[in-house]
Structures are given as structure tokens and as C-alpha cells.
Design a protein around this nucleic acid. Structure first.
Length: 569
RNA sequence: CGGGACGUGGCGCAGUUUGGUAGCGCGCAGCGUUCGGGACGCUGAGGUCGCGGGUUCAAAUCCCGCCGUCCCGACCA
């Protein structure tokens, strides 16, 4: 490709709207342009890199026994209403309507399409397992798109779906996909970890996230320095609480706590640490009131609450809700709550702990409140938010919180979708059973951004060769020197003849501009043809990743560049 | 949606406080000089000052409403 013809105008200054390195550099180096918040045009360079990743993904999917299909983007709403996700996704969905006023949506993921598809085609256990995937644009009207390609409203995703006869089959399919994902991200040159995670609005049980390290990453995970625990922050389990020694419990006593409606204020007023307070947070779960109990020094992990009740929508009580239920905001405690309020408690609330908690009466709290004796707990669960420094559930050492970008997320869905959608096959014994499903997402456009986050310096992008839009850039350093231009052209054609992807910077620009643009665009190998070198019978080579420079004899220029590229990271 | 900031040629910005001819740098076009790490000179093109309404003799500037973009939070590939 001749750069003089390439549709790519680089920017000398950082666009004001770009903050994250990948956003800034992809704009400056002419890979992408923004159309509106969270929606981007891929320019020729960006599209080439995107295709590179697609190709790697395709090869690994095909090699794992998955078959590519292509599902529609415009989807009828009905199956989504059946699975509950029409409500669960809510405003996250783009919801067009057709001329008949029928509800449609732009596909944010495709469980509701692929499940009935398979059910309609494969009625027998003999057809299983099945693994279908597609690489298609996804639409999610994110609350806040940001950081260029990292979080967008239209993004390219590879989504795969497996259909198995039973849990053992699912486990095997899942393991196969997990290995395929490893190979994809290894080939993309990403530094990443695989963590246990929360299934969010997809649902299901076991699931893992592939998290690429990045300072701008929006996703947090906890890691044990021993390496024996890794988990998404939202899914991280605390170390089980130490058993409480049996002892004499205090009586339940009401105390006046004037204008102390916060844990902090009560703690100061009564001179007791926040860890001895019992926090009682109220949620509305699809119309049902739920009280969640955690120690006063911990936060409720709302994701865990939402997961417990999925797909019912979960929201915190608003002021009006307290009034409706006859509760006093700031002074709510579990004892004496009406029966229509479900009480969920974190495991750490178990046993006699003489809690200080709200008295359900304005300006009053109680002391000596104990689970079982003074208040009922309908269910114990893991509900607290993990913090930096919390003990590792495996070894007890302090966990660290790390930042990352989720580039892949795989789920063992089980029958979460096949059951409500009545997607069944006939098993060997002649009975109908729902498919045991898995689904596997991989963000292609996000991987572009993650790769740039991990591979850049103050001059620009430094692509790993697997993702670079071109492998080599041939730079003509002296534009008015006919011999230099001719030699450059010759080497360019020779490289292209070797089957390499070459960008030929034949622009009528000064050498400095070309060098700067080459660094900015980040192509792995730079080959410079200039007067200086020609006089010495050589060309100059530079490896973008390391900045390492070398020279090669003019006659061996193309093969030397090819060898350098082959050895490049 | 809650909190904050911003919107002026393609890009980065000044001008708004105190209303009075729309500016600078980069980029773009032409000519000349220069020519291996973002060269220089001269000439030139390019702007409904986000949109709508209002105040005023006069609005980029003051007032009201709306739209858009970015940053912090809830959501996720």
C-alpha cells in the first residue's frame, strides 16, 4: 500500500476528547474516528487490525470444533420477554419498532436467537454437542460509553454458544473454549489473567473472565500474592468468618441516638467500632422488599444481591419506599421487621455477636441484637464487597486489587435459557430434556484497545506483529532524490513479492514527519532508504517494539526486513 | 440517570469577566528555498461562534430553553 494514497491523516496534537492512551493514539494515528458517543468508524488501518484479530479468533474457533454462522442484528422482542431480559436489560437495549408497532431490539448478545434456532434443527441427543459462533456487531446503549474503543455502544464481538446433553458435556465444551481463548489472547500478545467472575445479566453459574492488564481498566479483580486466588471484585468471596465462641449474650436494649442516622455517627456516639454495628440495607426486588444485613464496616455488594434474585430487577430503597413500609430511614434494624420483608444476611452476621443496629424508631438504636434470638434471617449468603487488603480465602494473605479490561467472558449457562425457551432434545431414553448450554463472548474491538493500552510509548503504538495493520513500513528519506525513490520502490515491491504486508511511505513529506508517523502508527519494522545509506550501500532498519536499530546491505534489504519481522514480538 | 466541565474554520486553543469589524498555532492550496527525526518565507482558501428563543441600536459575549461531547459513579465484550 502506498501511503500517499492511504486514507489516513495523522493528528499532530491529541484530540481534546481523548484521555485514555489507546483512545488518544488510535485517533492520532488514524485508526478510528468518532461518529457519536460510543460509536466509531474504523479507518483503513483500524479495519486491518480488526481483521487480524477476527482471523485469529476464527482460526481458533474453527480449530476447536465451533462452526461459524451469522445471526441477525434486528431481533424480535418476544423471546426476550420470555427469558425476562427485556426487563433485565432495560434501557441498555436499543429498541426500534417496526411499521406495525412491533417491539424489536438490536442484538446485544444472541442467546435468545441461537437457542430456538438449535432447538428447531436438532431434536436428538445424537446431534450433540453443537458449538456455533458468529463475529457480529453488538448493540448496547451503555449508560456511559468511554475511553474510545474500550466501552462503546456498537462493538464487534465473537459470541459462541455450546449445546450439550448434560453437565459433563458442558464441562468438556467449556474447557475446550477456555483453551481456545487462551490461544487467542496469547497470539494477540496480551498480558492477561483468567478470573472467576459474576455472570451479570447473562445468568448461569460458573464463569470466567479474561482480564487484560491496563491502568485505565474499568474492571477490578483481586489477586492473592501467593497466586492461589484470583477473582473479579464483584464475585470475590471473603474468607469464611471465624466461628464465634459461645458466650453469654447481652440483652436486647434500646438506646437513644439523637440525630445519628449513619453508622459513623452511631459509632462515635456509642463509642463502639463500626464492625460491631449491623448495617441493614433495603432493596426493592421486583416489588418485593428485601433487607440485607452486613457488618457496619463492610459494604453490601449489590451485584451479589442482584445475582441472588436474577433476573428480577434490584434497586435500593428510595425515600418514598421507607415511608410505604413504615420504616425510618437511618434507624432500620432487622428485629421486628414485618413478615413481608425478606431478610438476607451475610455469613458474617451468623451467631451471637451482640450487634448494634437500628431500633425501627426515629433517633433510637438497639444494642445486643442477635440473629435467631432477636431477629429472623431467611437466608444466609455471601453479600459483602471485597476490599484491598482483605485476607485471601485460600491462604489468608492480603489480597490486592488490580485494574484490567475484560476482553473475554465465558459462562456455563446450564438450562438458564433452554428451559424458559423450551429448547429441548430427545435423550436416549426417549424423554425431552433442555439443552445444557454454555456461551462465550470475546470483544474484538475492545481487544484492539486493550492491545494498544499494553503496547505503546510516548511516540505512539507498538503493535505486536500479529495485530499490526502492516508488518513493515518502507520510508523514503530523501523525497527529491530519484535514486533513493527508485530503490525504495524496488524494495517495497520485493517485500510485497515475499508476501509481506508493506506500507510504502512515498509521501512528499520531510523525513522527520515520516519517522514520527511511523512511530505513531506502530508498525513493527521500519525500513529507511536514504541518500546516506545508499552511498554506503545499506538501508537502515528499526524494530518499533524495542527501538533497536540495525543496517543491512542494500541488496539484502527486503530479506533483512522480513527476517527482522519474523523475529519481532 | 446523579455530580462536574466544555462546545469558536479539519485539529488544538484565545476572545465571553467589562456587548461594538472573529483571532492565533497546526493542518490545507500555490510559488520559492530547504531536504535522514514533526523545516522556512511569501501568498491564499476556509467559520450559520452547537441549536432555538429573548434582551439590546448592536450578542461568540448577557438571559431562558434545548442539543451534543468529555470526566467521576451504577452497567458490560
Amino acid at each position: 500500500m502506498r501511503m500517499s494514497r492511504l486514507f489516513a491523516r495523522t493528528l499532530r496534537e491529541d484530540p481534546s476528547e481523548a484521555e485514555a492512551p489507546s483512545h488518544r493514539l488510535l485517533l492520532r494515528a488514524a485508526y478510528i474516528r468518532q461518529l457519536m458517543a460510543g460509536v466509531y468508524t474504523m479507518l483503513p488501518l483500524g479495519l486491518r487490525t480488526m481483521r487480524k484479530i477476527e482471523r485469529i479468533v476464527r482460526e481458533e474457533m474453527d480449530g476447536s470444533g465451533a462452526q461459524e454462522i451469522r445471526m441477525p442484528i434486528v431481533i424480535p422482542a418476544e423471546p426476550w420477554k420470555i427469558t425476562g431480559r427485556w426487563q433485565a436489560y432495560g434501557d441498555l437495549l436499543f429498541k426500534p419498532t417496526d411499521r406495525h408497532g412491533r417491539d424489536l431490539l438490536l442484538g446485544p448478545t444472541h442467546e435468545e436467537v441461537v437457542t430456538p434456532l438449535v432447538a428447531g434443527e436438532l431434536p436428538s441427543y445424537r446431534d450433540l454437542p453443537v458449538n456455533l459462533y458468529q463475529i457480529e456487531w453488538k448493540y448496547r446503549d451503555e449508560f456511559r460509553p468511554r475511553f474510545g474503543l474500550l466501552r462503546v455502544r456498537e462493538f464487534l464481538m465473537k459470541d459462541a454458544y455450546t449445546f450439550d446433553r448434560d453437565d459433563e458435556g458442558l464441562q468438556a465444551s467449556y474447557d475446550t473454549m477456555l483453551q481456545a481463548y487462551r490461544r487467542v489472547f496469547d497470539r494477540c500478545g496480551l498480558a492477561y489473567v483468567i478470573v472467576e467472575a459474576d455472570p451479570g445479566t447473562i445468568g448461569g453459574g460458573v464463569n470466567h473472565e479474561f482480564m487484560a492488564h491496563a491502568d485505565v481498566g474499568e474492571d477490578l479483580y483481586v489477586a492473592c500474592p501467593n497466586g492461589d486466588y484470583l477473582a473479579d471484585l464483584e464475585a470475590a468471596m471473603p474468607r469464611p468468618p471465624e466461628p464465634v465462641d459461645a458466650r453469654e449474650l447481652q440483652p436486647l436494649t434500646e438506646v437513644a441516638t439523637p440525630s445519628a442516622a449513619t453508622i459513623d455517627a452511631v459509632s462515635r456516639l456509642l463509642g463502639r467500632p463500626a464492625s460491631e454495628m449491623l448495617k441493614c440495607i433495603l432493596f426493592d426486588v421486583g416489588g418485593q422488599a428485601v433487607a440485607v444485613l452486613v457488618p457496619g464496616d463492610r459494604e453490601v455488594n449489590e451485584t451479589k444481591v442482584a445475582r441472588r434474585f436474577f433476573p428480577a430487577p434490584v434497586r435500593r430503597f428510595e425515600d418514598a419506599d421507607f415511608v410505604t413500609h413504615g420504616l425510618v430511614k437511618g434507624y432500620v434494624g432487622p428485629q421486628g421487621l414485618p413478615d413481608d420483608i425478606m431478610i438476607l444476611a451475610d455469613h458474617s452476621v451468623r451467631g451471637g455477636k451482640d450487634w448494634v443496629t437500628g431500633a425501627n424508631r426515629s433517633e433510637h438504636h438497639v444494642t445486643g441484637a442477635n440473629a435467631g434470638r432477636d431477629f429472623r434471617v431467611d437466608e444466609y449468603a455471601d453479600l459483602v464487597q471485597i476490599r484491598d487488603g482483605d485476607p485471601c480465602p485460600a491462604c489468608g494473605r492480603s489480597l490486592r486489587i488490580e485494574r484490567s479490561i475484560v476482553v473475554g467472558h465465558i459462562y456455563q449457562l446450564g438450562t438458564t435459557y433452554s428451559e424458559p425457551l423450551k429448547a429441548t432434545f430427545v435423550d436416549e431414553d426417549g424423554t425431552e430434556r433442555p439443552y445444557v448450554m454454555g456461551c462465550y463472548g470475546l470483544g474484538i474491538t475492545r481487544t484492539i484497545a486493550a492491545a494498544v493500552e499494553q503496547n505503546h510509548d510516548e511516540h505512539g503504538i507498538r503493535w505486536p506483529k500479529a495485530l499490526a495493520p502492516f508488518g513493515v513500513v518502507v520510508i523514503v528519506a530523501n523525497r527529491d532524490d530519484e535514486q533513493v525513490t527508485t530503490e525504495g520502490e524496488r524494495i517495497y515491491l520485493e517485500l510485497a513479492g515475499l508476501g509481506l504486508e508493506v506500507l510504502f511511505d512515498d509521501r512528499d513529506e520531510s523525513a522527520g514527519v515520516k519517522f514520527a508517523d511511523a512511530d505513531l502508527m506502530g508498525l513493527p519494522v521500519q525500513l529507511v532508504v536514504g541518500r546516506r545509506g545508499l552511498d554506503a550501500g545499506t538501508v537502515d532498519l528499526k524494530l518499533r517494539a524495542t527501538g533497536e536499530r540495525s543496517t543491512a546491505p542494500l541488496q539484502r534489504a527486503a530479506s533483512a526486513a522480513a527476517e527482522l519481522l519474523a523475529a519481532a514480538p
